[in-house]
Computed example of a mutant assay.
Amino acid sequence: MLECESDEPWEYTLYIPNDVRAVTVSRRTLRLILTMHGLIRLGDVAELLAAELVSNAVRHTKGPAALRVRWSAGVLRIGAWDADPEPPEPPGSFEQAGDSEEGRGLALVRACSDLWGWQPLTRDGNRGKYVWCELTSAA
């Protein structure tokens, strides 16, 4: 396993089209980023969380999206930007979703991350939102 050479913060942004295949591209890109920074131990959970966030961004909006990954002070933040300014549906529980495959994404994000949230964004006249979660490294 590669060792992290430095505790210096870093950040990557992957801009993706509105295409369901972007979820797979995002997961594989995230895995590569974590491997190269010696954080592969966070890979499985981070991939799951990224897939849920990107999937929501692609499935529930019509425009482009982006995956953003940031490491700082032992915290990995994974977020998805999309062009829809509407807030995400509040996460329910797995029991509320029943057998339905819909409505479990943010419940999964809430259950598997240390912290999660969202914020509206306005930039260059474009509106949208950023939904994020954090994993704290237990190195």
Rank of each mutant, 00 (worst) to 15 (best):
residue 1 M to P: 13
residue 6 S to N: 05
residue 10 W to Y: 13
residue 10 W to K: 13
residue 13 T to F: 04
residue 14 L to A: 08
residue 16 I to N: 08
residue 18 N to H: 09
residue 18 N to L: 01
residue 20 V to G: 05
residue 21 R to P: 02
residue 23 V to M: 10
residue 25 V to S: 13
residue 26 S to W: 00
residue 26 S to L: 06
residue 29 T to L: 03
residue 31 R to C: 08
residue 34 L to F: 10
residue 35 T to Q: 14
residue 36 M to N: 14
residue 37 H to E: 11
residue 39 L to A: 06
residue 39 L to F: 08
residue 40 I to R: 13
residue 41 R to I: 09
residue 42 L to Y: 10
residue 45 V to T: 15
residue 45 V to R: 15
residue 46 A to T: 08
residue 47 E to H: 00
residue 49 L to A: 00
residue 50 A to T: 14
residue 51 A to G: 14
residue 52 E to M: 07
residue 52 E to A: 00
residue 55 S to G: 15
residue 60 H to P: 05
residue 62 K to F: 07
residue 67 L to G: 02
residue 67 L to S: 03
residue 68 R to V: 15
residue 69 V to W: 06
residue 71 W to S: 04
residue 71 W to H: 12
residue 72 S to D: 15
residue 74 G to Q: 08
residue 75 V to K: 04
residue 76 L to R: 04
residue 78 I to A: 06
residue 82 D to G: 09
residue 87 P to C: 07
residue 89 E to A: 14
residue 89 E to D: 06
residue 90 P to K: 11
residue 91 P to A: 11
residue 94 F to M: 12
residue 97 A to L: 03
residue 102 E to N: 06
residue 103 G to F: 02
residue 105 G to K: 01
residue 107 A to Q: 06
residue 108 L to F: 05
residue 109 V to P: 01
residue 112 C to H: 00
residue 115 L to M: 04
residue 115 L to Q: 13
residue 119 Q to R: 15
residue 125 G to C: 03
residue 127 R to F: 04
residue 128 G to L: 08
residue 129 K to F: 01
residue 131 V to G: 02
residue 133 C to N: 10
residue 134 E to P: 06
residue 135 L to A: 09
residue 135 L to P: 02
residue 135 L to K: 05
residue 136 T to H: 12
residue 136 T to E: 12
residue 138 A to D: 11
